[in-house]
Amino acid sequence: MLESFEIALRQHRIKNREELLKQFSEIFELVETIKPRYAILIDSFYKIFNQAKGHDVERMIRNINKIKKSYCKEMKDLTRSAEKIKANKKTILIYDHSHSVQNALRQLQKKRQKFSVLVAEQDLEKTGDNIAFLHKSNIPFKVVPSYMVSHLEDSIDMAFFGAVTFQEGGRFVMDPGSKSIISQLRLEKKPIYLFLTTSKFSLWPVKDVKKQVHVKSDIRNHHHFEEVAFERLKFSHDRVPVDLVDHVVTEKGIFNPEQTKKEFASLMKTRKEERSRLELP
């Protein structure tokens, strides 16, 4: 998004300052409406705008590059935190498609830890991407349908997950299906690692939790080609309590659930103070 904004700023030909400010406001509205709301994104846009006072486009572009660099550094630091995980000769289950998890696996491999990966299948595209990554990285792997993970519980030593964000109330927003696998592994006392940079925390109060349900009318042939019509429900995300996770790997180190909650509260307080000082369009 930031890279796209940088390109858009280079491409635009708006001379009128007022028109430019009006269009910035439209972009802020757009960024605010993206669900789930990403603090990393919203805050970046406010920072870019405020530091450049909304009209110095060159300065805005410089700020974008600065922010991009800082996020890259965060990701590197998170990967470095992951080095502490002892994964040698272990089997790691992965489920969702997360760059943080992929970077962590690559880092562990770099540090000469020899492990294998079990990919629990979700949708074709994401599973396919995980397979492509593991194949390219020369990491040994097997694939299992996610509803059959219970058959391999004994062979799983730990599980790695990514998340979209972490919300007030101590819940991670994750890919659908994550909660059942995490609960299942939790029951078997398998260590669960979750990888997320703190800039992705949603640092504002959760007003109401709206479930995004996709209802689709479906017709299928069942029993001697008789057509059966029904509603097929699909959910966009799972919300998983932090207490179900053992370790949260961030750029600041590896936290347990309590430390994660504390870190969230502290960041939320700081952000609130900073935002009150910002001039919003």
Binding site: S4, A8, Q11, H12, Q23, F24, E26, L30, D129, A132
Partner: peptide, 24 residues
């Protein structure tokens, strides 16, 4: 759309997505 910054932004976001998918 040179005079429409939100549309320029959305276009570039989409192109980035297509580029990412294409890379794979």
């Amino acid at each position: 759309i040179h005079h429409n910054l939100p549309k320029l932004l959305m276009s570039n976001v989409l192109l980035k997505k297509i580029e990412y998918q294409h890379k794979n």
